[in-house]
Design a protein around this nucleic acid. Structure first.
Lengths: 338, 338
DNA sequence: CTGTTAGCGCTTTCAC
DNA sequence: GTGAAAGCGCTAACAG
């Protein structure tokens, strides 16, 4: 194989080839109207010939700012709901020519801290962050540098800058009340890793509040361990423990777990929803693939990303953008509950 | 709300505060061993006080290159298999301090062209591209500038630089032969949008070749339309048409379609696998959630990303890296085939 | 161990 | 319509 050397032509080479100075080439690129048509033609030809690609780093440095990138930090790309948010964000940014830079925190706060600092050094024009709880250090840093920041997937009255999401507490509360309304009396709750995931924590609060209001017993609360993307097997594995509490329904904080539990219930000959009701969270594609189809909370992943993108863009332009945008969730009743 | 102004402190401010020149601050950041412990302490304090975040753009410009970023272009983040590739790539890059910049092409070649040009202007140190067919313009550009490039998810003898993948033709061939081995005689093939997806095209070739070898009839080939991420409903919607061909088995180029078809078959009272065998491709989580569990081709998404990352890194360091890395796929026999 | 001098590749004035 | 000078924020190379 021939040796590959990096070889980015510079504007100067284009200029020489076209018989002008770099200044004219620069102008040809950013305000072609100000360049004589004939000159323009020669410059365009030279660009083609050399394979010139502008150096955005130099450009941004010189122009004092915007490389037109937005940074998004999500727990994992594996989870479909965050993927949705990314898709929504992309959709909002693309028409304006902004690029998306993605980081995965792995649900780890320390990793988020590291990534914020690292990405900040690239001077992005905006940030999308998942969740609303984070280290004071990162909060301060972000506040101080003054880039537009959107926190997502939860609500708060004290965002760093803006927040786009819904109330996880309310969502879990609503589902629990709904379950109670269907006649379930012993509703168990199985949460994802709540130490590292405030969404799970808020859902638990909503669940407890609903039970209290309804005068129902709070069963032992189960938490699935590892701070990682949820796995179907996790839901299957925890079912036996949960059954020891004699629940007539189980509310999982993720469809993924719920699906695993339904499968495990079938293996054990437990009829869903007849003997045991099961509810999930997120409304993933998998929810309608499992039999019986899963009752769940539909959550607005894509919209969150889109609105977040629009808000960041507005801020960049100096237009007003709402500090808090609440996006509605909804309960989707299907066949895994009576 | 108080007005937010961008306000990134510069190295000069840190230097002044610490009573040194910028050079010493720069050194304190990149080779602290060369700075007096006491000076270092003062500089660190000043950095903390000011909330200084290095400007990587300026740094890269000056140091003549590496912003330590790798760009990955995938069709969509929605598809779990590309998400796996991203996760694998991240895993390879993280330990070396490289960042991942992600672009979604939406399965569109023109979009890829635009993104390559746009991202190239940020001078990434490497590229991961999905698939091996692309516009000559983009090929030339990438070859010319000499950044490390890995093409993925297929094999070719003429990569731009390197390729990491498997043979989609072979994979489909193997599955088709396996199906024939189970006694299926009329094996239908349903493909994703092949105009924009060469993986689908190659799979079709493998399917045809296998049938020919086995002396089995090639049924009408069905293609699912839209160039977008596959949807479960697409598989359900196309089933009736496919059934008109009287197949005893259907091989879908994605588990997603296969799952939709299984559901539709159930609705129509068709027994799977008894009356109709169904096979998929990718081995997504959904494949073991559907009942009957799906026979499919397991494809090494995560490994592809990881190896691609390792290869790019090797190239960057000037170490040798293989031009072609073939990663094995495998047939996973489950319950949707007899 | 620390400072000085250049200069990365481009864009912003301000001239011509 | 085009060019010359200055500088974006940082680092490499050399001095001291």
């Amino acid at each position: 194989m021939t040796k590959r050397e990096k070889n980015f032509p510079r504007m100067a080479e284009v200029a020489k080839l076209a018989g002008v100075t770099v200044m004219t080439v620069s102008r040809a690129l950013r305000s072609p109207a100000k360049v004589a048509p004939d000159t323009l033609k020669r410059i365009r030809a030279a660009i083609d010939k050399t394979g010139y690609v502008p150096n955005a780093l130099a450009g941004a440095l010189s122009a004092g700012g915007g490389g037109k990138t937005i940074t998004a930090l999500i727990p994992t790309v594996q989870h479909a709901i965050f993927a949705d948010t990314i898709t929504g964000l992309s959709a909002a940014l693309r028409p304006e020519g902004y690029h998306l830079v993605l980081g995965e925190t792995g649900y780890l706060s320390e990793e988020e801290d590291a990534l914020v600092a690292a990405f900040l050094s690239r001077r992005p024009e905006g940030f999308l962050l998942t969740g609303v709880t984070r280290s004071p250090r990162t909060r301060d840093l972000l506040k101080r540098v003054g880039v537009p920041v959107v926190e997502t997937w939860e609500l708060t009255n004290t965002p760093i800058d803006m927040v786009v999401g819904y109330s996880n507490e309310k969502a879990a509360h609503e589902m629990t009340v709904w379950l109670a309304g269907r006649g379930y009396k012993r509703i168990a709750f199985v949460s994802g890793p709540s130490r590292t995931n405030e969404r799970a924590r808020r859902r638990e609060i909503g669940y407890r509040r609903a039970l209290k209001e309804q005068g129902l017993p709070v069963l032992k609360i189960f938490t699935i361990g590892a701070p990682a993307a949820p796995q179907v097997e996790d839901g299957a594995a925890i079912l036996p423990e949960v059954l020891a509490e004699k629940p007539d329904a189980i509310f999982f904080t993720s469809d993924i777990y719920a699906v695993g539990a339904i499968q495990e219930a079938r293996r054990r000959g437990i009829a869903v929803p007849k003997e045991l009701g099961i509810a999930g969270f997120h409304d993933l594609a998998i929810a309608t693939v499992i039999e019986p189809k899963l009752t769940t909370v539909h959550v607005p992943g894509r919209e969150i990303g889109y609105i977040a993108g629009r808000n960041i863009l507005a801020r960049i332009r100096g237009e007003p953008a709402p500090q808090l945008s609440a996006i509605p969730f909804s309960i989707v009743a299907r066949d895994s509950t009576k």
